[in-house]
């Protein structure tokens, strides 16, 4: 039995039903503990004061905003290559979640901007890149909504996602070329391993990041299940009208 069998809509509904409460539970526990710990039981930073605590929302949201798009890209590629319907619907389900994460990252960033930079918004490369990412989400979702036939919509949005990813990466480097920016370097560089966050903040931050990741998975599973049900309703209605 290959792993792809789990991508069959019926199988997917079967195995996600018991997983879903666990996913939401773990996500709630991790983010809850991480946020409370981070907000109330960590010292204030010398440089930033209490405002540093927004990091517990800002960093995980920003992380998931990018990862959500990456997941949509992978799902789109799977749809284009193997034509598993669940994959296309999962990409559709992930887009609004990713967009909300982008908005959270932008909004918390703007709030953090006032005490540190003295302004809500600067045209800094990172902020600008996220603004562009937000526009990509917007276009992707709008295209899904605009097309009636589900297969056509899945095909077109998948190609848009693939082409858009290339341009998103191009934009990121173009934006860095354009303006060097105020934003600090990444707090958690995965590749080099040397993080700039002090140990006291690190554990709750890690909990929040994992919590947001699990929350994303849970939301996408839930929304994918809804999309599958909608699609199934559509298919059943089509059959009934034909039989009549």
């Amino acid at each position: 039995m290959s792993m792809w069998e789990y991508a069959n809509p019926k199988k997917f509904m079967d195995w996600t039903a018991p997983v879903l409460p666990w996913a939401f539970g773990i996500a709630g526990l991790l983010t809850g503990v991480g946020l409370v710990w981070g907000f109330f039981f960590t010292p204030e930073a010398e440089l930033f004061g209490a405002t540093v605590k927004i990091i517990y929302l800002h960093v995980p949201a920003a992380l998931m905003a990018i990862n959500a798009w990456f997941m949509m890209l992978v799902a789109s590629l799977i749809w284009v290559i193997r034509r598993h319907h669940v994959s296309a619907l999962a990409a559709r389900a992930a887009a609004p979640v990713g967009m909300v994460m982008t908005v959270i990252a932008l909004a918390t960033g703007a709030l953090w901007g006032i005490p540190t930079w003295g302004t809500y918004w600067v045209w800094d490369p990172r902020l600008t890149s996220f603004m562009i990412l937000f526009l990509f989400y917007l276009g992707y979702i709008a295209l899904w909504e605009a097309i009636e036939d589900p297969d056509t919509a899945a095909d077109l949005t998948a190609i848009l996602c693939i082409v858009g990813s290339v341009f998103a990466i191009l934009s990121r480097y173009a934006v860095r070329f354009w303006n060097q920016g105020l934003h600090q370097g990444t707090s958690v560089p995965v590749v080099t391993g040397g993080r700039t966050v002090a140990d006291v903040y690190w554990v709750p931050l890690l909990m929040c990041m994992i919590g947001f990741g699990v929350l994303f998975v849970a939301l996408v599973l839930l929304r994918t299940r809804t999309e599958i049900r909608l699609r199934r309703m559509r298919a059943l209605t089509a059959r009934t009208t034909r039989a009549a």
Partner: peptide
Amino acid sequence: LLSLLVLPLYVPTLI
């Protein structure tokens, strides 16, 4: 919709 889809793709060229 066309403008919404195309304008973000224009960003690198414009920059």
